[in-house]
Design a protein around this nucleic acid. Structure first.
Length: 255
DNA sequence: GTTGAGCGTT
């Protein structure tokens, strides 16, 4: 993808990788190629994309053939405004195979010489393996959080609205102009014509039709259900840890 | 349709 014809990594033997940050999410390799090719021989341009959505992640890798050209590109293109955004150009720090890069050039690291490269970055190398749950991305999760919160809010309102409409005003389901417009108007109308005492949502929330909060019941029941088998499951693990090794993580690290 | 610190593909 995003290559000039090759499918995989072309040749990372004598190339200098540059990391382009702060590019827009719409910027593609074709947009960066003419810009970077002006300052040297660009071997390859790669823009990581999300596996799920296929959307750009906001940064790109530009590989130059010579270091001086790469340096020039960094000096000339760093801070350049591309597509309305100021990009950041710098030498790549990590390699695709977790190999260390020196000044953008990939240097093969041989840990068998006695020196172990334990000083590696604490960050995990493969996030594709953990592409689930909340940590599949760093800041993206933040944005998603915001969105999820927004959606959750809407869902909550929707849910409440449906609940109310079911019990009180079925006309809402028919009304196409649903949303907060009607709600706001109704709210304002109510606040003006109705007494202020009615506005207090406190007692309403307390005397909710659903006397059983889902948040309190869910974990409780789950805890009971999951507690029984969980303990049994932990049993062998503790014994194993006690008998074999205190930290199973060590096995992966290998001394 | 959104977002913004960072480090990559068959």
């Amino acid at each position: 993808m995003s290559h000039f014809g090759s499918s995989g990594p072309p040749d990372i033997s004598d190339t200098y990788s540059l990391l382009i940050l702060n590019i827009t999410f719409r910027t593609t390799a074709d947009d960066l190629f003419p810009l970077f090719d002006k300052y040297g021989k660009v071997v390859d341009i790669f823009i990581p994309k999300d596996r799920r959505t296929g959307d750009s992640r906001g940064f790109a890798f530009v590989r130059y053939k010579y270091a001086d050209e790469a340096q020039k590109a960094v000096d000339r293109l760093d801070g350049r405004v591309v597509d309305g955004r100021e990009i950041t150009v710098q030498f790549a720090k990590y390699g695709p195979n977790a190999e260390r890069i020196h000044k953008g050039r990939i240097v093969e690291s041989a840990p068998r010489s006695g020196h172990r490269s334990r000083s590696r970055s604490p960050r995990r190398r493969h996030r594709d393996d953990h592409y689930r749950d909340r940590d599949y991305r760093r800041s993206r999760s933040r944005s998603h959080d915001r969105y999820e919160r927004d959606r959750y809010r809407g869902k909550d309102k929707d849910s409440r609205r449906r609940s109310r409409s079911r019990s009180a005003s079925p006309d809402y389901s028919k009304g196409r102009g649903r949303g907060r417009y009607d709600d706001d108007r109704r709210s304002v109308s109510r606040s003006i014509s109705a007494s202020p005492a009615r506005r207090s949502p406190s007692p309403r929330k307390s005397t909710s039709p659903r006397k059983s909060p889902p948040r309190g019941e869910s974990p409780d029941r789950r805890s009971r259900d999951g507690r029984s088998p969980s303990r049994r499951s932990v049993s062998p693990r503790g014994r194993l840890a006690d008998s074999r090794s205190p930290s199973p993580q060590n096995s992966d690290v290998d001394e």
